[in-house]
Design a protein around this nucleic acid. Structure first.
Lengths: 188, 188
DNA sequence: GCCGATGTAGACAATTCTGTCTACATCGCC
DNA sequence: GGCGATGTAGACAGAATTGTCTACATCGGC
């Protein structure tokens, strides 16, 4: 009898199961708050299997961030495209994310806050993540002398909105205020 | 012979010493990363003294956030006043903060990311903090119909800038991009 | 047919964490 | 004078942490 609380498909290879489980727990509860034993139990593997794939928790943390990065950017680019591939796509795209029940802010902002001082790789991966987010935003802007700086301004406003959405009960104020900020930025 | 690594003045009452030490360690290294034993050792008190003042680590965490809140707002209001008490004061004020060697982002953003899912008081205190920050910003704006929303937009931009300054090596890009964002917001 | 990669089961070690306990000292204030 | 608040020193308990170890099973590909 298996009484595992496995939440991921047991047909997936062990490595995928571990990564998916870590992704859910790390993002939801925080990284330090999540013990390795918990990840092992919920992904339905054994300790040996786990440690064969991830020599230490720090390795898992880095792989979790890389995994999250690929996943998030893929969603972001797709959402922007679905909503018209211009600046007006930003709000509906972010609205999707903020309204998702599992939204708990930006995994990279959270991780840098939690581990940045102690695990430099976390900062490095997160910086790369924000850079790629900014590049995706830049592609929405018409080529011009200010494109790079404008994209940075939009990215900064979005980070502020992520924080706001994370703090508030509802994502509406964050989206509303972000809209005002974007409008002001475009009307220059 | 006292070999304590006490970093706070030993003449202060025990409670102050604990709070100052916790403030430094929690902000610098993260909350979960900092053990109670470490706080006790570096504040130069004993376990009994510590637990008489703070029944549990969670109590200390909340008191740390309240302490940080009072301290930060006091500094912020003062800095805004010193720099002219108008919107142009924001940049030089934040520049002071970002350039401080101990800057490691916003303690409330970091704490919500780390503990928000598991300690609701943290979110509550942090929300209050952001509200008071926003009110201080609102007082820089001329009374108008949009004052509240404008203050929220400025606060959101500032949160984005805090993140950016925390991620980057240097605070310059964060300040520069924030400047652009504020200029756009005012020129409406 | 064999080898290496991947998988399972669970005991065990070493450390660290929070929090409790006993026993005693000092100081301000009613 | 006595009491309560505040302080010191350090042993101890109980739980949780990360990571190691032995022993065995399965399966695909060379």
């Amino acid at each position: 009898m298996q009484t595992n609380k496995t939440r991921v498909s047991p047909t997936l290879p062990a490595r995928e199961r571990i990564l998916l489980t870590a992704h859910e727990l790390f993002y939801r509860d925080g990284i330090r708050a999540t013990g390795i034993d918990r990840v092992i139990a919920e992904s339905g593997v054994t300790k040996v299997t786990f440690y064969r794939h991830f020599p230490s928790k720090n390795d898992l943390i880095c792989e979790f961030l890389e995994f999250r990065h690929r996943r998030w950017i893929e969603w972001f680019v797709d959402a922007l495209q679905r909503h018209g591939e211009n600046l007006n796509a930003l709000l509906p795209a972010l609205s999707e994310w903020f309204n998702d029940g599992s939204f708990r802010g930006c995994a990279f902002i959270n991780s840098v806050g939690e581990l940045g001082a102690v695990l430099p790789e976390v900062v490095e991966i997160s910086r790369r993540h924000k850079l790629e987010m900014m590049e995706a935003i830049a592609r929405l802007l018409p080529p011009s002398r200010h494109r790079a700086v404008d994209a940075q301004a939009v990215a900064m406003a979005i980070d502020g909105a992520i924080i706001r959405a994370q703090f508030d009960q509802s994502p509406e104020p964050a989206l509303h205020v972000l809209n005002r900020l974007l409008k002001a930025l475009l009307a220059k």
